[in-house]
Every structure is written in structure tokens, then in C-alpha cells.
């Protein structure tokens, strides 16, 4: 009911009259992982057409999502919903975990930072699109996004990044969240660009304002010296 108006009653997708445009793409072969990601993060059902479906409060309960995912998975084989074993480094020794985080960081910096920023903060994309922030996103959803490539994002299927490599990327993202944050303002985590802008505009601007304020105030008064002898 919630999906058929765009994706068709059998999940076959609905094309528009204009060639190459569609109201909703076919769901055949997208797999349970794609359904789980889009519905659990609230991206689907779509509230309104736009350049990109935003993350929002999910509409369906967990059982409903599971049922929809199972139905879509039955249409054609596709990526399954990953289990905790796939994306967690809980079972590893401390050394193995550290190794996973370091490797995950290198993979992240090579494959993901172009769009998602080197701290996972997200960034702008052409024509009103954006790469969303990865902060606070559930590990399962990151894994599913890698597997299925939501919207304009390319996918990182198992033939592209192995399951262990995906797990390591998630371990790296979790490790940046665990790093103690000594406060201050993130300013987008963009490093010298935003910090420099802040220092030049607000910092130096504030100093210029202070100097103007000093110069605009005089210490002189209307008092005149009292003539000698005038004192009583």
C-alpha cells in the first residue's frame, strides 16, 4: 500500500511517458538490505519529490520493515540484511581491532572522503544533492548503504570491497566517534579552510572593531584648568 503507488503493485517500477524517467524504480533484485536501509532510516516512503530523499523519522515498525524486506527479497536474489557479525569487531582481539581500525581508515580515506569528508561529516554534491553525515548512523545502515548504494551513491559490493573491508570502514567510523572530544566548535571538521575563515573574519574583524571602538572614544573632557589664584 505504501510503496505500490510509485514502485508498482508487484514492485516492477512505474515509468513515466518521458523516456528514461520513472516515478519509482523497479524493486526486483534490490534485495532486503536496500529495503531495510531506506525504510528504517525514513528515506522511504518519500514525503515529496526532490533532488534527494532526506533521512527522517521512520514510518513503519520493525516487524513491518522485516515483512516488506522479505517480500522484496522474494522477487529476485539481492543483498541480504547484514547481521551483527558482519559489521561488528566485538569478537576480535585488541590487536586485531586496532589493525581493523587503521585499515578501515585507509580504505575510508581512499573511497569515501571524496564525498563524505574525512571525518564522515558529509558534504555537498551537484544539483542540490548532498552526501549525508555518517555521524551517529547505525553500523547496520552504513553496511547496507555500502552494499546497495542508495540514491546517487555508488555501491561497494562484495566484489568491490570485501565484507571484512566494509567492517573495517565501520570500525574506523565508530573509532572517530569514540575519540574524546575536548570541545571547541567543529566548524564542519574541514580543517584549515573553515578555521581560517573564522579566524580572519570573526577574529581579526573583532580586533578591528575593538581598535575602532578605542579610537572613537576620547579621554578628553570639557574641563578647563582653574586659573592660578582663583582658588579660594
Amino acid at each position: 500500500m505504501g510503496c505500490a503507488s510509485c514502485h508498482g503493485q508487484n514492485g516492477e517500477g512505474i515509468s513515466t511517458i518521458r523516456d528514461g524517467y520513472e516515478k519509482g524504480p523497479s524493486l526486483v533484485g534490490v534485495g532486503a538490505a536496500a529495503v531495510d536501509f531506506r525504510v528504517e532510516t525514513g528515506r522511504m516512503p518519500l514525503a515529496q519529490p526532490g533532488s534527494q530523499a532526506p533521512r527522517k523519522q521512520p514510518t513503519y515498525s520493525d516487524e513491518e520493515v522485516a515483512a516488506m524486506a522479505a517480500y522484496v527479497a522474494s522477487l529476485a536474489p539481492g543483498p541480504a540484511i547484514p547481521t551483527e557479525q558482519d559489521y561488528s569487531i566485538e569478537g576480535l582481539s585488541d590487536d586485531e581491532r586496532e589493525e581493523a581500525i587503521v585499515r578501515g581508515g585507509q580504505i575510508f580515506l581512499t573511497n569515501c572522503t571524496a564525498c563524505h569528508n574525512f571525518n564522515g561529516g558529509g558534504g555537498a554534491m551537484p544539483r542540490g544533492g548532498y552526501a549525508p553525515s555518517l555521524k551517529g548512523v547505525e553500523s547496520k545502515h552504513i553496511y547496507e548503504a555500502l552494499l546497495t548504494g542508495p540514491q546517487a551513491m555508488p555501491n561497494f559490493s562484495n566484489g568491490n570491497l570485501s565484507p571484512e573491508e566494509k567492517r573495517d570502514v565501520i570500525a574506523y567510523l565508530r573509532s572517530i566517534e569514540d575519540t574524546p572530544n575536548y570541545g571547541g566548535f567543529g566548524m564542519g571538521g574541514l580543517g584549515p579552510v573553515s578555521e581560517g575563515l573564522f579566524a580572519w573574519v570573526l577574529g581579526i574583524g573583532g580586533l578591528v572593531g575593538f581598535a575602532v571602538w578605542i579610537a572613537a572614544h576620547t579621554t578628553r573632557s570639557t574641563k578647563q584648568p582653574i586659573e592660578e589664584g582663583a582658588e579660594a
Binding site: 585499515r103 561497494f156 559490493s157 568491490n160
Partner: peptide
Amino acid sequence: RDVVGTPIKASELEIGDLVN
């Protein structure tokens, strides 16, 4: 694959994949 250095099986790539 960049960074990891493992070879890529062409048949294992899927539509929409991007490999650096």
C-alpha cells in the same frame, strides 16, 4: 584496489560499483 592492493574479479563487480 587502492590501499589494500588486492586484485579485482571483473565478474564480482555489480552495476553501480565504484572502485578506487
